[in-house]
Amino acid sequence: MYKLGDSIPTRNAYGDTLVELGRKNDQIVVFEADIGKSTRSAIFGKEFPERYFNIGVAEQNEMAIAAGAASCGKIVFVSTYAVFASMRACEQVRTFVAYPHVNVKICVSHGGITPANDGVTHQATEDLGIMRTIPGMTVIMPADAVSTRELVIAATQWDGPIYLRLTRDGVPVIYNEETSFKIGKGILLREGKDITIIAIGDMVSKALDARDILSKQGILAEVIDMHTIKPLDESIILDSVRKTGGVVTVEDHQVECGLGSAVSEFLGENYPIPIQRIGLRNTFAESGEYELLLKKYKMSVDDIISGCFKVVGRKKKKR
């Protein structure tokens, strides 16, 4: 369905998968907040109008309605943008979705700076952190269209709430359709011995690019796609760092509270080693082209590479 290398916004894969699921399972219902054309939930609405509810520009209401619907036994998908679900409707998520542990799957587009041109109001760069601190929440960001499809399907079989973050803009397809995905299980994409790069979402393909360049410079990096940051796949991290002794984390998010924090917290308690986090550092981004923004905010392939060099250097000093 999705060809390796094609650039596809993961929101598109989400919309397609919803329809696929809708055909198989009549217990799936979808709520939308007047951006269905953009989140791609409208595709589901077109085929299943009776199971598609557009609540209007009212995300708090949307979230609480979803909780009520889930209490009636439905598998409920909530579509909107990441900023609105995680911030405007944050309390509804915490108190009425997570605390009662109902089956609401919050699938949100415009994660990170992927709505590049839209500017800060529409770029969610704190959402993973907010969601990660809520007890019982599962937090996911797939790296491409193939893994989006697999993880959205897995979400329907998962007991309890999920926050799944999608991209507005295209990201290259990096998986073939044979790869299998499990919520809470990272994917070892490339083996290496000198350093471990752990990436999430749209940054996974950037990590792969960085690895290619690094290998020409004599550094063999192991690359892990940590699509689920909560629950964190601790064993894949431990297995890798025991071999490499250093980590670079890469995320389209503030370095606080997201993937970098999750990995640092785990390693700090269990296996302290040099670590470098790539992501936004106490700053908002802005409007502009995606690649230019990555450069300006030090999240580009070059920045991943220099992060790796830093860690390798610190490893040597440690010895």
């Binding site: 839209d118 109001t121 529409h122 409007s287 502009g288 300006k296």
Partner: peptide
């Protein structure tokens, strides 16, 4: 407009001359 580095962001920002308040998140 909407170019990297421009003060004319995709949605209004208070830092732009003449803009009295950031907006874009509706309501």
């Amino acid at each position: 407009l909407r170019k990297a580095g421009s003060f004319l962001q995709g949605h209004p920002e208070i830092h732009t001359s003449g803009i009295d308040m950031t907006s874009g998140c509706l309501g």
